[in-house]
């Protein structure tokens, strides 16, 4: 039983829950992206915690963190591009008004 690991994982769980709530409940695309960022951050916490408390010798754990950070950056870039394009064409980034994206 490693208390630190469980604490770190619980914090990851908390971040995940907050992020999930945000991603589902917000109406604005940018706010939804914030929720997704939080979910990814939760993943980061878990990865680092596993690396630290279980396999500190295996650097692939840290490398995975780097990849997730890249994914976060990509998500931002793509998300903002969509936001700009949508705002340009429709004047809104509210998801309520983007129902054709839901289909």
């Amino acid at each position: 039983m490693i208390v630190e690991l469980s604490v770190a994982l619980s914090i990851g769980a908390g971040l995940f829950a907050v992020g999930l709530y945000g991603a589902l409940s917000q109406t604005n695309l940018v706010m939804i992206m914030m929720g997704i960022e939080l979910i990814l951050a939760a993943a980061l916490v878990n990865l680092v915690a596993f690396w630290r408390y279980l396999h500190p010798d295996a650097m692939s754990g840290q490398m995975f963190v780097l990849i997730v950070m890249t994914v976060m950056a990509v998500e931002m870039a793509v998300g903002f591009a969509i936001a700009i394009a949508r705002f340009r064409s429709r004047g809104s980034v509210e998801m309520e008004e983007a129902r054709e994206l839901k289909g």
């Binding site: 039983m1 490693i2 690991l5 469980s6 994982l9 619980s10 908390g14 907050v18 999930l20 279980l54």
Partner: peptide
């Protein structure tokens, strides 16, 4: 309400996973 529920369920599941198993000895 949906979001709160989803978040709550996610939280509980993740908490259970993090506390229930035996992770073995710390490095």
């Amino acid at each position: 309400r949906l979001s709160l529920r989803a978040g709550g369920v996610g939280l509980l599941a993740a908490l259970a996973v993090s506390w229930l198993p035996d992770w073995g000895p710390a490095a």
